[in-house]
């Protein structure tokens, strides 16, 4: 919170850096491990070569992956976020099921805006994805630090801060621990 960058409302830096390249490398390595599903030495040697090759080729476009806060607790923070997210996904599905199955179709849709403190493209993408998959909200647009959201049960005359607290805050707290 205290060290939020001043350009929060402005342009997102998408230039590749060592740090975004590292994120790319780790992601490619994880995908390789999952796809081969094996720790045999041949697979690992091939995996190192493939991972390096893919990372080198894709490096110029890796800028959108920048913004991860590296720490030893990173896997733990990601698990916490996944837990928050899974709970919300279940809630959203029972919510949708209830609305769809109720004969009177209890919906009151509206469009609201929400402000985010996340400054990286990756963080905003994750936040927008989370909002789309959770109860009654669909991200329509992300423009700088404002997200436009379609809300299936929108209280009338809601303002930006109330909407932010209701929709985005839970995810943002979980996300800000491992991404800017």
């Amino acid at each position: 919170m205290s060290n939020a960058t001043p350009k929060a409302a402005g342009h997102i830096d998408r230039h590749p850096s060592t740090e975004s390249g590292l994120t790319l490398l780790v992601m490619v390595a994880i995908v390789w491990l999952l796809l081969t599903g094996s720790l045999a030495i041949q697979e690992l040697v091939a995996g190192v070569l493939v991972t390096l090759a893919v990372t080198l080729i894709a490096y110029p476009r890796s800028g959108i992956l920048g913004g991860v806060r590296w720490s030893f607790a990173l896997p733990w923070y990601i698990l916490v976020y996944l837990w928050v997210f899974t709970l919300a996904l279940f809630k959203s599905n029972f919510d949708v099921a209830r609305r769809v199955l109720t004969p009177s179709l209890p919906i009151r849709p509206g469009i609201v805006q929400v402000r985010t403190n996340l400054t990286s493209a990756l963080g905003r993408m994750l936040l927008a994805n989370s909002i789309t998959l959770t109860p009654g909200t669909l991200t329509i647009d992300v423009e700088n630090d404002l997200l436009t959201i379609h809300w299936i049960d929108c209280p009338p005359d809601i303002d930006l801060d109330t909407a932010t607290a209701a929709i985005a805050t839970d995810f943002e707290v979980a996300l800000r621990r491992f991404v800017r």
């Binding site: 959203s92 599905n93 769809v100 179709l105 919906i107 849709p109 789309t132 379609h150 299936i152």
Partner: peptide, 15 residues
């Protein structure tokens, strides 16, 4: 059942 395209996208995506 949903009345417009945004609500259809919502139920479609989540469920």
């Amino acid at each position: 059942r949903m009345p417009d395209v945004y609500n259809r996208i919502q139920t479609g995506t989540k469920a």
